[in-house]
Design a protein around this nucleic acid. Sequence first.
DNA 1: GAAAAATTGATAATCATTCTCAATTGCGAG
DNA 2: CTCGCAATTGAGAATGATTATCAATTTTTC
Lengths: 165, 165
Amino acid sequence: MDAAGRFARYLASHRLKMTRSRRAILEEILSIRGHFTADDLLDHFRRRGREVAPATLYRTLARLVEAGLVHRIDMAKGQARYEPMFGRHHHDHMICLRCGKIIEFENREIERIQAAVCRRKKFRLLEHTHQLRGHCAGCSRTGAAARSAFASGGIDVRSPGRNPS
Amino acid sequence: MDAAGRFARYLASHRLKMTRSRRAILEEILSIRGHFTADDLLDHFRRRGREVAPATLYRTLARLVEAGLVHRIDMAKGQARYEPMFGRHHHDHMICLRCGKIIEFENREIERIQAAVCRRKKFRLLEHTHQLRGHCAGCSRTGAAARSAFASGGIDVRSPGRNPS
DNA sequence: GAAAAATTGATAATCATTCTCAATTGCGAG
DNA sequence: CTCGCAATTGAGAATGATTATCAATTTTTC
Ligand SMILES: [Mn+2]
Ligand SMILES: [Mn+2]
Ligand SMILES: [Zn+2]
Ligand SMILES: [Zn+2]
């Protein structure tokens, strides 16, 4: 089933309604490839005239996360990032502290060991985050000259395709 | 060298002063075993009459983190946790979503693979967080009855000794 | 001990996100 | 279709942990 269908099913099973705003937000997210912030989306809408209130966007993002269609990435500070998870599998992130770029990685071995550690401690694992912070290839090369797009908002919006590694 | 000495050295090398407040804060932290929030510390001080302004505490905690004597654990929401890192080595955390307990774990294998992944992507790793969230042994056992000490502040303050695993 | 430099603390500011609540909309029943 | 009611929306206020301001105070230096 497609994303819209899955969302509809989720809404129905929770006595929630498929409204114009929710449809528009899902639509907009599906058109994005990569990671984005709530503000990124608000900007997109503003530019197209179609306004969506922040409260509504935040509420809908929470629903989409609930429904498993979107993943939320909590940063140590500043805004959270989101990414569409439709048709993708779990992965973790490397975050460049210079330019803000987000690189995805996926490692079965780590996940396996992680599960084993939890088993040993009798810990029922529900979710996890594994964030690697440092300098991306580009920023390591170009000394201190890297334009710090991080602070000023020029954040990454790119994904390495369906199967990151 | 002891913690106070290391802090003194750090301060000196940064043209900073060893003040009464900074000494008191470090002292207090050393007396704690386990994880704590800024508010936990403020409470301790308040109870002993010796007041310390929040601004001062936050500033000092930042210095201690800089100096490598304290580690800061950013939670997805709510206050950050801190823990003394004096004489301890790196480890990561499992966080119980029911009772808030923090369990430490350390796994060389994961860290090794993590480093390899970074090498492959030419990413210069500077720091990382690996948080496992779920239910601790106790909370898994006692169904939904677990008192949610998390929201109400009764957070863990315990460490499994010098060498977690 | 005085001057210079750093620190403190009261207070205001930040800022992403959530809350409130009156007005609006979606939708199932009739 | 049209009601009726529950769910949703949006404007604006509230939250809450942390940081910024800045005058008064403490430390260190000379
Ligand atoms: Mn991703
Ligand atoms: Mn710890
Ligand atoms: Zn970079
Ligand atoms: Zn627990």
